[in-house]
C-alpha cells in the first residue's frame, strides 16, 4: 500500500513536470514570442534588441532551464499583457469553473449510475432501450450547438432562465445542464456495461442462492465490484471538464471561468499564463487521479492488503 502510494506520487510529479515541459516547448519552439509581443510594424533592429533584452535569443534549453528553475518555486513569470504573476491569473478563474464542474459531474454521476444500473439490471427491457437511446443522444450532442439551443429555448423563447452571467443559482442551470449531457451519456454506457459484466459472475449466483433480493444483490454486491471502470470514466470526464472543455459553455453563457481565461490567454498568446494554466490543469488531473485511486481502494479493500 505504502509502496503503491509512493509510486503514484512519483508518477504524479512526473506527469506535472511532463505537461509543463511539453506546453513550454510547443509554445517556444512552434511560435516566436517576440513576434507575438511586438506590433508587426516594429523595425527589425528593434525586434532583435527586444529579443536580447528579454533573453529570447538564448538557446532554447537555456531558456527552459531558466524557466524550470523558477517554476519549481511556483514562479511562472509575469503575464506578458497584464503585469501580474501568471500563476495568479491562472488560478483566479478556477473557482468559477470548479463550481460548474462539481455540480455537473455530481449530476452526471448520480443520474448516470442510477440509470445505468437500472438499464444493466434488465438488459433488453424497455427501460434499457430508453436509457441506451438517451445515452447515445448524450454522447452525440455537439456542444457548440446544444449550448446555443439551450440559451435560445430557455432564455430567449421561454424566458425562464437568465441568458448569461455569474452569481446566482439560476445562472448555473444552463451551463451545468449542457456540461453534464455528455458525461451523463458516457456514465450510463459504462455503468450499464460494467454491471452487466458483474451480474454474469458466479458470486452473483451465490448471492441469489442466499435469498437476497435483486436490489440488495445489485447495490450491496454487484455495484461495488462494478465501480472501478465507472470511477475511471467519471474521473476522466471531470478532468476534461475542469481543464478547458468548459470553454464553449463559459463563453456562451458568460461564465468567468478557467476555460474562458485559457481561451483568452491562447488568443493573446500569453505564453507564461498558458504554461501556468497547464500547470494548474496538470495539478487537477493529479488530484482527480488520487480521488479515483481512493475510490478503487474503497471499492476493492483487498488492494490495501497487496
Amino acid at each position: 500500500m505504502y509502496k503503491l502510494a509512493m509510486h503514484r506520487l512519483g508518477h504524479s510529479a512526473l506527469l506535472i513536470f511532463g505537461v509543463v515541459t511539453v506546453i513550454f516547448f510547443t509554445n517556444f519552439l512552434l511560435g516566436d514570442p517576440v513576434r507575438v509581443m511586438l506590433p508587426a510594424s516594429t523595425p527589425p533592429e528593434a525586434v532583435e534588441e527586444f529579443r536580447r533584452q528579454m533573453g529570447f535569443d538564448r538557446p532554447i534549453l537555456v531558456q527552459y532551464w531558466d524557466f524550470i528553475s523558477h517554476a519549481v518555486f511556483l514562479d511562472f513569470g509575469d503575464s506578458w499583457w497584464q503585469k501580474s504573476p501568471s500563476l495568479e491569473i491562472a488560478l483566479r478563474p478556477f473557482p468559477a469553473t470548479l463550481q460548474l464542474g462539481i455540480v455537473a459531474v455530481a449530476l452526471a454521476s448520480i443520474l448516470g449510475i442510477g440509470i445505468g444500473l437500472f438499464a444493466g439490471a434488465r438488459p433488453g427491457s424497455l427501460w434499457d432501450k430508453l436509457a441506451t437511446s438517451l445515452s447515445i443522444l448524450g454522447v452525440s450532442l455537439p456542444l457548440i450547438w446544444f449550448t446555443l439551443m439551450m440559451a435560445l429555448i430557455f432564455s430567449v423563447w421561454l424566458g425562464i432562465l437568465p441568458t448569461a452571467g455569474y452569481g446566482t443559482a439560476a445562472h448555473m442551470v444552463l451551463p451545468v445542464v449542457t456540461l453534464a449531457a455528455l458525461p451523463l451519456g458516457r456514465t450510463v454506457q459504462i455503468t450499464r456495461a460494467s454491471i452487466i459484466d458483474e451480474l454474469a459472475k458466479p458470486y452473483i449466483t451465490t448471492a441469489h442462492s442466499k435469498g437476497l433480493s435483486e436490489r440488495t444483490i445489485i447495490l450491496r454486491h454487484a455495484l461495488r465490484n462494478a465501480l472501478p471502470p465507472i470511477a475511471t470514466e467519471i474521473g476522466w470526464e471531470s478532468a476534461l471538464l475542469l481543464t478547458g472543455y468548459s470553454i464553449i459553455v463559459e463563453s456562451v453563457y458568460g461564465w468567468p471561468g478557467f476555460g474562458f481565461a485559457l481561451y483568452h490567454a491562447i488568443l493573446t498568446r500569453d505564453m507564461p499564463v498558458i504554461i501556468a494554466m497547464a500547470f494548474v490543469a496538470a495539478m487537477v488531473v493529479v488530484f482527480i487521479n488520487v480521488i479515483v485511486d481512493i475510490i478503487y481502494v474503497i471499492a476493492d479493500p483487498t488492494i490495501r492488503k497487496k
Binding site: K210, G211, R224, N225, D300, T302
Partner: peptide
C-alpha cells in the same frame, strides 16, 4: 426459501464468493 430452507454450494470457491466483501 433460498438460503433458509434450501441452500447451495458451488463448484468454484474462487469465484463464488464476493471478492470485495
Amino acid at each position: 426459501i433460498r438460503g433458509k430452507e434450501i441452500s447451495m454450494i458451488f463448484q468454484d470457491p474462487m469465484t463464488s464468493l464476493n471478492p470485495t466483501m
